[in-house]
Amino acid sequence: MHELSIVMSIIEIATKQMEGADASIIEEIELEIGALSGVEENSFEFAWNQAVKNTPLKNAIRKIHKPEGIATCLDCMIDFSIQQLYDPCPVCGGHFLNIKNGKELKVKSLVVN
């Protein structure tokens, strides 16, 4: 379950930033987890609840943005939304695609105190 590694990295990044801001608790955390990022929601939830105990993120409110998957068909040069990496271009049915959006995996901001 790589979601646990992901959560551990989030805790590390957030704790460092909190300390850098001379604060001791994190009240809110804003994340960006794209629809094509490979993070499974239930596993993430489970890992989160296990891992944030005894960390400054313990009681933090989470705001998660989930950018949708958007691909460009390199034959038709049009953009369209995709749910899966193997979705075809709706115009030509091809798979000659560039993923433009949806792979994000980021800590965007914190509210600290």
């Binding site: 990044i13 930033q17 001379d22 980021k106 800590v107 965007k108 901001s109 914190l110």
Partner: peptide, 19 residues
């Protein structure tokens, strides 16, 4: 010496950055 109260920290960091 230090700031108090709620404040926003802009992070904008990739979660897999370290790896």
């Amino acid at each position: 010496d230090h700031v108090h109260g709620k404040r926003i920290v802009d992070v904008e960091q990739d979660i897999l950055h370290q790896n």
